[in-house]
Design a protein around this nucleic acid. Sequence first.
DNA 1: AAACGAAAGTTACCAGTAGTAAGTTAGGTG
DNA 2: CACCTAACTTACTACTGGTAACTTTCGTTT
Lengths: 215, 215
Amino acid sequence: MKQTDVMGKTSTTASRRPGRPVGGQLEVDREQVLDAAERVIARDGAGASIEAVAFEAGVTKPIVYDRVGGRADLADALAERLADRMAAAAAAAVRVDTTLTKESLRGFIEASLLVVGRHRNLFLYVTGGTTEQTALGRLKLTERSTTPMSSALIAWRTGFGQPTDVAEAWAFGIVGMLQMVSMWWLTQDQRSASEVAEQITDLLWHGLPGSGRES
Amino acid sequence: MKQTDVMGKTSTTASRRPGRPVGGQLEVDREQVLDAAERVIARDGAGASIEAVAFEAGVTKPIVYDRVGGRADLADALAERLADRMAAAAAAAVRVDTTLTKESLRGFIEASLLVVGRHRNLFLYVTGGTTEQTALGRLKLTERSTTPMSSALIAWRTGFGQPTDVAEAWAFGIVGMLQMVSMWWLTQDQRSASEVAEQITDLLWHGLPGSGRES
DNA sequence: AAACGAAAGTTACCAGTAGTAAGTTAGGTG
DNA sequence: CACCTAACTTACTACTGGTAACTTTCGTTT
């Protein structure tokens, strides 16, 4: 996690001269900074510093602050990306929109797990807050995942004439369950994603009494 | 979050002379440091620094490092305390050991929520990791909660002749659900703990299809 | 065309924080 | 009495998030 310097210069100093660039155009835009952040996190781990991100992007710290804001905003933006990627993977696997079946739930969970596995460090970076602000801020980012799920739950339960006031609590609960299971799964080499997805699906679909006994 | 100094001296300097204390005994032991940490976190928020903890304990930083270790170890120790307190509250409310009923599950969840509400900042401190190490370290701390739950699940399912290989995944999932719901509940002033506990219990007990339709 | 302000960067700095090495005093032991 | 060890404090290093100040170029106005 030392970073220090990669070339001869201390990484604080950029390779470019100060001042407005000759082209007159922005050197790197927000998306490129976020791309760089993902690269450095994937390579060096979740403890990546803003400076390392700036260096990877080929610019200096104030640029990062100008493009994406502080560290909390960076985590938020990356969380949005990850959440979107999970949603896309899930959408590609199954269709949760209107009809929710046990099989589609299982597909959704497994797709989420696989995305987390593919972006391990990013997931750890995004779910690992720092201060109190970002601790409750992680909540805000989680909403990126909960909002669609909440809507889906409302639509689904409405279709069956069931009360929808549980949707929000359920959505947060399910997202929390998924996050923790993902984290745990990252430490397990034996279990396959489909195995874990199956087990969690069973719990979420049939409830604790499970496939066996009286309700 | 400024801390800086409380008396005239900059908080880096202690009020006591250096050297071995006159009594020959330890000035403060591990438990007292942890108590101090809980106080300062409860008062000043989850962003409390090691130095602030040391100051609250009436000692200096190296003492904290000697007694409890680094920041990650401090979080671990405090997490153990919080988990034990939750377990105690749950045990006082219901008996989950051998028989698990819907009502006892509901009591367990509500008791957990209330403990979180009573130790809001501590909960945020404990669930808010920093680097990659503590991100996966939070997993380890979570195990403090999951281990008893896992045993309970195994015992319970064994009693009904159901397979127990799901226990670990389920335990992590349930703990994750509880943590996220707690966090969300902290931001909601309207909803009562019992209301949220009821909703989450419904989900965990009856499953997503809920009280309405076919399984 | 010269002057000037705005835009886009870098440099250099500040404040705070985790962690540690070195110095200091008191108690015990040959 | 000398010496070692235990239990502290002081003072420091290394690093990080964040920002103010400075530098260069572009576009526009007189």
